[in-house]
Nucleic acid binder design. Structure first.
Length: 419
RNA sequence: GGAGAGUUGGCAGAGUGGUCGAAUGCGGUGGUCUUGAAAACCAUUGUGCCGAAAGGUACCGGGGGUUCGAAUCCCUCACUCUCCGCCA
């Protein structure tokens, strides 16, 4: 949530920044709503004060046995006035709150301007072995007979996958490897619920705007779209002391995405699924430290690609491609030989105090209370990593080799083709 | 699923209609004492909103009601705990 006081003070700045983010709401209207809300509140508080004074007076008079009829009449009249004004206030206030929840975070100053991914800026390219032909992972899956979209379709529908045997083991090895990496970088491992309430999704920014992207399981509860939601919301309505910071958390969870609005996009293979595994890194840091923390987060995620010897590039997202809650995002994109291009495998973002304002997570340093900054990043999306390994480690007529760093988690170093 | 008991400040725990934003204890912070520390003692210590401030207002799980007045009475929802049943 943006700070309305800041918004009022630097309206032009916010207007410019929010336009870059594609926001089209009427900020002037929001500000005037806020002002009339405050005006009503002042009047309301004054009336309530009068009534409280009167009630006390009635108490004392009644104890003395004196007449209280006149005061009662006055009090009733005050009650009526209060009720009318209170209703007006409540409507205005909840209205305002809804609109505030729909305002996206503003981009950092070093975020390139642009409306779509064509304005994203490549920071760095790290190339290991890079082939630009060969079968895609779906074909490889058929050759090794361990990747089964048809059965998944029978069980559940489109955008699901069944992994078998050594391929399922390879995915498990990836998860263990990534969690071990996170641990060695100082992240504490969490096991968290995969179903969360709407308060949690509002806290991290998926709700109220992106209801359609979530899988609802009824009763106001949703499957998590990323471990970011439960991990970050661990500290919802909590105060974090300066001594506890930085907080570094990680979790492996499945992620569930409705993928509404992406019909016909990436329909082949396991690039875009309703369910996939991911290791997420989440940090709570001192407000002055978040820029540095983003670099650190990116380095933790990219080190995994380095160790797997997968070619990738670092891209800073432009303002228009930036997510709703993010102030700055650096994507890692892995090379896919079959598509002859880089595809997103990790997204590392700095949210600054946007999420902690929504969550009411305070940062306590001595007697001052502010908001800590949050960051998160995938390290990595496991499904896409698996896919990248299949394509980049495939040898024609032989099979899929196992990356060196994963060998200690497995009892084989090759997944042979069966036909 | 059935029966019952709860939800009060950072924690524990009083408070059943007015003087209660709330006793007391623990914890926290500041101080006295001490070479230093501990102990002891003294003071202080919830949050949001409006306001330049003074101050006002709201908050005793959430929502609603009764009343001039609600932490306290009523309704309702959520959650927690105990026992029984079922269950990985």
């Amino acid at each position: 949530m943006i700070d309305i006081t800041q918004l009022k003070e630097h309206l032009d700045h916010y207007k410019k920044k929010l336009t870059l983010k594609g926001y089209t709401g009427n900020l002037n209207e929001i500000i005037s709503k806020h002002e009339s809300k405050n005006n009503i509140q002042v009047k309301l508080d004054d009336l309530k004060n009068k009534k409280n004074v009167l009630s006390k007076e009635i108490g004392t008079l009644a104890q003395k046995g004196e007449s209280i009829n006149e005061q009662k009449k006055q009090s009733e009249q005050l009650s009526n006035e209060i009720q009318i004004l209170q209703e007006e206030f409540d409507v205005l206030n909840s209205n305002l709150e809804k609109e505030l929840l729909l305002i996206p975070n503003i981009p950092d100053d070093d975020v390139p301007e642009g409306t779509d991914e064509s304005s994203n800026l490549e920071l760095e390219k790290i190339i290991y072995k890079q082939s630009d032909n060969g079968p895609d992972h779906v074909e490889i899956g058929e050759l090794i007979e361990l990747l089964d979209f048809n059965t998944a379709n029978k069980l559940s529908g489109s955008r699901f996958v069944v992994l078998k045997g050594k391929l399922a083991q390879l995915q498990r090895a990836l998860i263990r490897f990534m969690l071990d990496e996170a641990a060695s970088n100082g992240y504490e491992e969490y096991y968290v619920p995969y179903i969360v309430n709407s308060e949690s999704l509002i806290g991290t920014g998926q709700l109220p705007k992106f209801e359609d992207d979530q899988f609802s399981v009824g009763e106001g509860k949703y499957l998590i779209p990323t471990a970011e939601v439960p991990l970050t919301n661990v500290f919802r309505n909590e105060a974090i002391s300066v001594d506890d910071i930085p907080i570094k958390m990680t979790a492996h969870t499945p992620c569930f995405r409705a993928e509404a609005g992406s019909y016909g996009k990436d329909t082949r293979g396991m690039i875009r699924q309703h369910q996939f595994e991911k290791i997420e890194l989440v940090k709570f840091v001192h407000p002055n430290e978040s820029e540095k923390a983003l670099d650190e987060l990116v380095s933790h995620a990219s080190k995994i690609l380095d160790k797997l010897e997968l070619s990738y590039r670092k891209v800073v997202l432009c303002s228009g491609d930036l997510g709703f809650s993010a102030a700055k995002t650096i994507d890692l994109e892995v090379w896919l030989p079959s598509q002859k291009c880089f595809r997103e495998i990790s997204s590392c973002s700095n949210f600054r105090d946007f999420q902690t304002r929504r969550m009411n997570t305070k940062f306590v340093d001595g007697s001052t209370k502010t908001y800590p900054h949050t960051l998160n990043g995938s390290a990595l999306a496991v499904g896409r990593t698996l896919l990248a390994i299949l394509e980049n480690y495939f040898e024609n007529g032989v099979g899929v080799h196992i990356p060196k760093v994963l060998k200690k988690y497995l009892t084989f170093d090759l997944i042979k083709i069966k036909k």
